[in-house]
Design a protein around this nucleic acid. Structure first.
Length: 272
DNA sequence: ACTGGCTCCTGAGGGC
DNA sequence: TGCCCTCAGGAGCCAG
């Protein structure tokens, strides 16, 4: 499932292939993604020239000369670059034809993704405007996190998964960062001390950074045109390991559900 | 202002 | 081998 590292890897992989290209065609195979794709979109992007491929949180923004395509991969989406002779795959929902003959194909089995056309100032769009800081950026500091937690009763895990707190921390990385920070996922956010906020910021950064580094494989895949995004085989310490021994203390990891999400933690290493 | 629950969807995996 | 059930998840939306 694409988390921030996968989205950034996608951006890095695609950007050099888009520079200076124009859109010859956009074909919508189906429009019922999370929100319906506008039937006007193919006309809107026709002949548009790519200016930049940006990212904000898990949103990709394809900037063109008279607007921007806003894309979210949901939880099963991927974009691949393929030659025009390559056949369509199951769950390919739209494809852009570039003026060098290459195709940009969007595949998304669960269709939680989205594709919007924004004519101006995408940063002020409702889906973007209220997003919290980038986890690897300068604004995501211990003091920021600490302040954002003040007075909140919500569990710390849910708080850091809220994109208004910080973007890009999905279920897997939240569980991992809390484990490495020794913080119990159910602890009320308002109880987080300044030192533990500092620790948590560091651990969120560390787990995301490791994943981005492993994203190099995905990047090469794009260049080779085999299009398989490939999920990161990163070392997971708690996620998906309920009932297995903690790699630090050996006690069995506990599982619970928090905010409709599977949560795994070590009741000994992680304190409230 | 916060918070938690619901929702979209398909595929994987377990039980029998 | 096959069917049925449950679960997984990003994040906007809405009710309390």
């Amino acid at each position: 499932m694409p988390e921030l590292p996968e989205v950034e890897t996608t951006r890095l992989g695609l950007e050099p292939h888009l520079a200076g290209k124009t859109v010859l065609n956009l074909h919508l195979y189906r429009r019922d993604l999370r929100w319906p794709v506008s039937p006007e979109l193919p006309d809107a992007v026709l002949d548009q020239e790519f200016r930049a491929l940006k990212r904000r949180g898990k949103y990709l923004i394809f900037e063109m000369n008279r607007g921007a395509m806003l894309v979210h991969l949901g939880m099963s989406g991927s974009i691949r670059l393929s030659g025009c002779e390559e056949s369509l795959r199951k769950h390919d929902h739209w494809e852009l034809t570039l003026n060098n003959g290459m195709l940009l194909r969007y595949n998304d089995p669960r269709r939680f993704g989205l594709l919007f056309w924004l004519t101006h100032n995408w940063e002020q769009h409702a889906l973007i405007r209220n997003l919290g800081p980038e986890p690897l950026g300068l604004e995501f500091t211990a003091d920021y996190l600490y302040q954002s937690c003040r007075g909140r009763t919500q569990a710390i895990k849910n708080h850091i998964m809220n994109s208004q707190t910080v973007v890009g921390v999905g279920n897997i990385y939240a569980a991992e960062a809390l484990f490495h920070g020794g913080i119990h996922p159910a602890m009320p956010a308002g109880k987080l001390s300044i030192p533990r906020a500092a620790r948590l910021v560091e651990e969120v950064r560390a787990v995301l950074t490791r994943s981005i580094e492993q994203g190099g494989t995905t990047l090469r895949d794009y260049v080779n045109g085999n299009g398989q995004p490939g999920y990161f085989k990163q070392q997971l310490w708690v996620y998906g390991r309920e009932g297995q021994p903690c790699k630090i203390c050996g006690n069995l990891l506990k599982g619970s559900r928090m905010g409709q999400r599977a949560t795994v933690f070590c009741a000994y290493c992680q304190k409230r």
